[in-house]
Structures are given as C-alpha cells and as structure tokens.
C-alpha cells in the first residue's frame, strides 16, 4: 500500500480525537422509536452503571433489538435521549458513536461473507482509550483476541462465508473485542451456540467486566443471564416494565413466566 493510501485509510477508519475522552456508562431516557408508522419503543428508560453487566430480557418482538439499534444511532429515536457518560449522543451518526469506544455484537452475527477472518479484525481494530474509565488492562490486539479464539487463528485466511455458525459468532465477538470498547452491546450472543462456547463466552464477559468494560446484553437465554447480570431489565411492549437483580429474577418464577414465557 502506498503512503497516501494508508493516510486516507486512517482518515476513514481512525479514531475521532475530539471525542476520545468520554466516560462511559449508558443512560437511556424516554426513548421513542418508530419504524415508519409502527411505534416500537414507547419511552424506554434504562441505566447501565460503569463496569457492570446489564441484561435486557423479554419475549420476541417487544423491541429489544430496536432498543439496541436506537442506542447506536442505526434506528434514530424520534424522542428521548441516549447518554454515554455525560455526553448526549442521541443524534450522533452511528460511525461517530462507534469511534468513542462503543462496540456491537449484533443479532445474527452479521459478519462480512467476502472478507477473510483477518480482514474482519483489521478493519475492526481500534486502539480505544485504555487508561480512562479504569481500563488498566492491556489493550485487545488482534493477537490477543486470537489467543482467546484459537479456532479463528486456524481459519485466519479463510473467507467468513466458509465459517460455521459457532465460528461466525466467535468472529463477531473478536471483531468487537479488538475495537477495545468501553461499552460493549451484545444482541443475543448465545443464539445457536453449543454449551461449551456459551461457557467460554461467559468467562470472557466476566473478564471484560473485571477489566472495566460496561456491557449491555440482550439475551433470551435465562441461565446465561442469571449467571452474569448485575441488573436485569425486563422489556415488554416497547417499555422496560421491571428492573431487578439477577437473584430476584431467579427467585420469581411468576415474573419469568409472565414476561419471558418460560
């Protein structure tokens, strides 16, 4: 690659220096989002303290994925605010938000079929702002991410289209890891994973939390939620209807039946 091409590539994918120092921890208030005429989010309120794992649970179709998209600026909210630290990011374009250390592991993985495993990590890699917000641990380089997922190491030069479902999910997680997020948002990460990989994922999330990362987890897998969540937000018909600790949710079969149908 020529020097000027590499320069241009930094301009397109580089970090935005002006907004590098935002403290993280997410606050969503009164969020309303529409898809065309359909009113999906009816005033969502949610707080995610720093260095914690907050889970959003609820049946299919209650607006969990829309909430994730609205937080990230992919489906801009019609009303309400999203704060990351002290900053109101509700009207920010998605790419700007991602540059201040917010990473997404989306529902359905959404890996790029025509890119190799390595290319995913290369375009996803960001130095992030380690050091602020208590992130004292060493940054997630591509090599460190591959140590966690040796399977990806073996398939480094393969196109993602050839990966299995489990490998795709590992890639989606690794792609978010190398962005060195302070806020990690995961939408149904355990969907379709084998129990062994789910265990591995749980270990990883606990480790990330101990490194200072704040995690918002949208999940249907109740056992996974109960094992990880510092706080659980139950969502129904476009609202957060109840928030409690994982222990409280685990002790209330009434609540799990009513809102989760299990």
């Amino acid at each position: 690659m020529t020097k000027s091409a590499s320069r241009a590539s930094e301009d397109i994918v580089g970090n935005d220096p002006a907004i590098g120092a935002l403290p993280v921890a997410l606050k969503v208030s009164g969020l309303h989002t529409y898809y065309g005429d359909s009113h999906v989010l009816h005033g969502v309120d949610l707080d995610l303290p720093r260095r914690s794992i907050g889970c959003v649970v609820g049946r299919n179709g209650v607006g969990k994925t829309t909430l994730v998209r609205s937080i990230l600026g992919l489906s801009p909210p019609a009303q309400g605010q999203v704060h990351i630290g002290a900053e109101d990011v509700s009207r920010w374009p998605a790419h700007r938000l991602a540059r201040c250390a917010v990473a997404l592991v989306p529902q359905g993985r959404r890996i790029f079929p025509s890119l190799t495993v390595l290319e995913h990590l290369q375009i996803g890699a960001r130095t992030g702002e380690r050091g602020v917000d208590g992130l004292a641990a060493a940054p997630w380089t591509i090599d460190r991410a591959l140590e966690i997922f040796p399977r990806l190491q073996e398939r480094l030069g393969h196109r993602a289209a050839t990966l299995s479902g489990g490998e795709r999910q590992m890639l989606a997680v690794a792609r978010a890891l190398v962005a060195n997020p302070r806020l990690l948002i995961m939408d149904e990460p355990t969907e379709g994973l084998s129990p062994a990989i789910v265990d591995q994922l749980r270990e990883l999330l606990l480790r990330l939390r101990s490194e200072g990362v704040s995690i918002l987890l949208v999940e249907q897998n109740l056992a996974f939620v109960l094992a990880l969540a510092d706080r659980v937000h139950i969502m129904d018909k476009g609202r957060i209807v109840h928030a409690c600790s994982a222990v409280q949710l685990g002790e209330s079969p009434e609540m799990t039946r009513r809102y989760l149908g299990v």
């Binding site: 241009a8 994918v13 970090n15 790419h95 790029f112 375009i123 962005a179």
Partner: peptide, 20 residues
Amino acid sequence: RIGAVVRAGMDDEEMVRAMG
C-alpha cells in the same frame, strides 16, 4: 485495508457504520 472496507460495505453497509 481500504479495499476490505469497501467489500465489507458491499456485504453489510450498516454493520460497517456500527464499526466506526
């Protein structure tokens, strides 16, 4: 890397945006 970004954009533009 620019080429990879362009190909990623062809696959899934929105996800590329969400990656900053």
